[in-house]
Design a protein around this nucleic acid. Structure first.
Ligand code: NAD
Ligand code: NAD
Lengths: 210, 210
DNA sequence: CTACATTTGTGACGAAATTCACAAACCGGC
DNA sequence: GCCGGTTTGTGAATTTCGTCACAAATGTAG
C-alpha cells in the first residue's frame, strides 16, 4: 500500500491539508472533486494520492474533514512537535524564526546558533543566540531533530556534518550548495535564485513561442 | 527540438550553470560525465537535457565551458537584466532584497512597495520604499517585469492582480495561497512550510520502514 | 592517412506518474 | 429493503520522464 511515494504527491498532500484548514464545517465532508478544485489538480489525482496511505473516505459521500485532516497530519509527520534549531542568525534566518506559521504547524525552535560574537548572547524570538562552538553539546542536550541551515555556503558543509554527527534527522538547507551528508539524512534544498530562473525561463519560453 | 520542457529539466539547467560558474578554466571543456558528477544526475540525463535546446558540444571532446555557460544563460533567460519590484518590505522581503546573488544573476530591483506608512519613505538597499498606493503608476513607469510578492496572504491576490494589470510578466510568490492570475502569467510559489513538511514526511516514512 | 580512444546526440526501451473508467460501496427516500 | 444518485478505490491505459546503448563525429598519435 505504502511504498515509494512521489515527491509531487507529498507536495499535494500539503496542499490538501492547507485547503482543509480553511474549512469551517469540521464535522462535514469533502469530495475529491472539491479538494481538486482548490489545489489545481484532478479528482482522480486526489484519490490516487490518498490511496497510497489507505482508504479513508466513504463512497457516495466523500471524506470527513476532521478525519482527513488528522490523517494528513499523521502522514506528513506533523501530528507531533518537531524540535528545530536555526543555525545562522543572519538576514534569512531572522526572517524565518519570526515567522509564526512554523510553530503553528508544530515546528518548535529550541535553539539558535551563530558564530558572530556580536550576535551571540542577543535575543531573537524567544531564544538567546548561542555560540556556534557549542553546537554539538547544545543540540544533543536539547535533542534537536531538524536543522534550518542559514549560514554562508562556505560554512554549510561543516555545520551540516557536525549536526548529523550529533543525531539530527533532517536539514532544511538555504545555502546554494549540495550538502554532502549520508543518504539516510533527508535534505530539503531551498534555492531562491533557481526559483527566479524558473520564472525567467518560463517567460522567455513563452515569448519565443509567440 | 524545443517543445514541452519538464520542470525538472529546468532545475537541472540551473544546477549545471552554477557548476560551470565554479570553473576556472574558461577556455576549457567539460564532459557530460563531469557535469553529472557535480549535480547528482547521470551523463545521459545531462545530454538529454541539453539536447532539448540544440546540440552544442563536440563529440569526443565535450562542451566548451564558456559557450555552454552563455547558452545556459540564454536558455534560462538571464542573458539580459530583469527589472524586478519587491512588494512587501517585511521580514522576508527585507532579507531577500539585501541578498546580493539576485543582482549578480541579473535580477535588478528597481522598486520596493509597502502599505505601512511607517515604512514608506525609508531606505532599503539602494531604494526608497514607495507607497503601495502608487504601485500601478510606478510599475508602468519603471517597466517592472517581475514581482517578488512578500505581503500577507490576505493582500496577495489584490497586489498580484494589480501588478498583472500593468503588464508584469511573472511573479515569485511567498504568500501561502494560490494566486488567481491569468494562465499566461507564470507564478513560482515558494512555500517554506511545505518544505518542512516534506522533511518531516521523509523522516517519518523512513522511521516507519525501520 | 589510418587506427584508436573519446564523447556527443538520439532512437529505442523501461520506469514512473497521471488519467481514465468502472465496479463496489454508501446514503436517503420511500 | 430496494432504488437512484453519488463518490470512492483501483486496475488498466496513457502520457511523461529517465536510462541505455550505439552510430556518428571529433581529436590524437604514429
Ligand atoms: N538572504 C536571502 O534572501 C537569501 C536567499 C537565498 C539564499 N540565501 C542563503 O542563505 C544563507 C544565509 O544568507 P543570509 O543572507 O542570511 O546571510 P547573512 O550573512 O546575513 O547571515 C549568515 C549568518 O550566518 C552566521 N554564520 C557564519 N558562519 C557560521 C557558522 N559556521 N556557524 C554559525 N553561524 C555562522 C553569520 O554570522 C551570519 O549571522 C546563505 O547561504 C545564502 O546564500 C539567502
Ligand atoms: N517570514 C518568513 O520567514 C516567511 C516564510 C514563508 C512565507 N512567508 C510569507 O511571506 C509573506 C510575508 O511574510 P513576512 O513574514 O515578511 O510578513 P511581514 O508582516 O513581516 O511583512 C509583510 C509586509 O507587507 C506589507 N503589506 C501588507 N499589505 C500590503 C499591501 N497591500 N501592499 C504592500 N505591502 C503590504 C506590510 O506592511 C509588511 O511590511 C506572508 O505571506 C508570509 O506568509 C514568510
Amino acid at each position: 500500500m505504502t511504498r515509494k511515494i512521489p515527491q509531487s504527491t507529498v507536495r499535494r498532500l500539503s496542499h490538501y491539508l492547507r485547503s482543509l484548514e480553511g474549512f469551517e464545517d469540521e464535522g462535514g465532508t469533502v469530495s475529491s472533486e472539491e479538494l481538486a478544485a482548490r489545489g489545481q489538480t484532478t479528482a482522480a489525482q486526489v484519490r490516487k494520492d490518498l490511496s497510497h496511505f489507505g482508504s479513508f473516505g466513504k463512497r457516495g459521500l466523500g471524506y470527513r474533514v476532521d478525519e482527513l485532516r488528522s490523517r494528513l497530519r499523521h502522514i506528513l509527520g506533523i501530528d507531533r512537535p518537531w524540535r528545530v534549531a536555526l543555525v545562522g542568525a543572519g538576514r534569512i534566518g531572522r526572517a524565518l524564526i519570526e515567522y509564526p506559521d512554523f510553530r503553528a504547524r508544530g515546528y518548535e525552535c529550541v535553539a539558535i546558533f551563530d558564530s558572530d560574537p556580536d550576535k551571540v548572547g542577543r535575543r531573537l524570538g524567544d531564544q538567546t543566540i548561542r555560540d556556534a562552538a557549542t553546537l554539538e553539546e547544545a543540540m544533543e542536550d536539547l535533542q534537536v531533530e531538524l536543522v534550518i541551515l542559514a549560514v554562508p555556503a562556505e560554512a554549510a558543509h561543516d555545520v551540516a556534518a557536525r549536526a548529523v554527527d550529533v543525531g539530527v534527522k533532517g536539514i532544511l538547507n538555504f545555502a546554494p550548495i549540495r550538502l554532502n551528508v549520508p543518504p539516510r539524512i533527508p535534505v530539503q534544498d531551498v534555492n531562491l535564485v533557481m526559483e527566479l530562473e524558473a520564472l525567467s525561463f518560463a517567460i522567455s519560453q513563452a515569448e519565443e513561442a509567440g
